[in-house]
Design a protein around this nucleic acid. Structure first.
Length: 114
DNA sequence: ATATTGACCCGGA
DNA sequence: CTCCGGGCCAATA
């Protein structure tokens, strides 16, 4: 059988994000071996039908929720994250900033790896 | 076939 | 903080 499709790898990468943690769309793409395909990730998440998929752990690389405050999903995502102990305030995650760049990963405070 | 859109990203100014 | 410009690419119009 052929290897998993890009979509499958992306879904796996999302499922691999542990509760209490968040990741950016681009970061998910990188983890799935598809650097630069952040939009593809967004598209898949938008069209997902799996209720078990932790889509709420996926956000913008700057730690902001990818919805405008008036969008229904905005509240739900915030609530789900809060339920997992993620400190999200005004649509933005505190403390756990989605690692955006390589620099951030390399220069992250010691012990704070992911 | 081209044009626009979108749960995006990033570096620079 | 904002704004700009380039990259990315599948679905829609």
């Amino acid at each position: 059988m052929p290897g998993k499709s890009a979509a499958d790898r992306i879904m796996d990468a999302i499922r691999a994000v542990p509760p209490g943690q968040v990741a950016g769309y681009g970061e998910i793409a990188r983890r799935a071996g598809l650097p630069g395909r952040a939009r593809l990730v967004a598209r898949l998440v938008a069209g997902n039908d799996d209720p078990a998929l932790p889509w709420h752990r996926v956000m913008r690389s700057d730690g902001r929720i990818a919805f405008p405050p008036d969008h229904p999903h905005y509240a739900e995502q915030s609530q789900r994250l809060l339920a997992e102990g993620v400190d999200v305030k005004a649509g933005r995650v505190r403390g756990q900033r989605a690692a955006a760049t390589l620099d951030e990963l390399l220069w992250a405070p010691k012990g704070r790896r992911a």
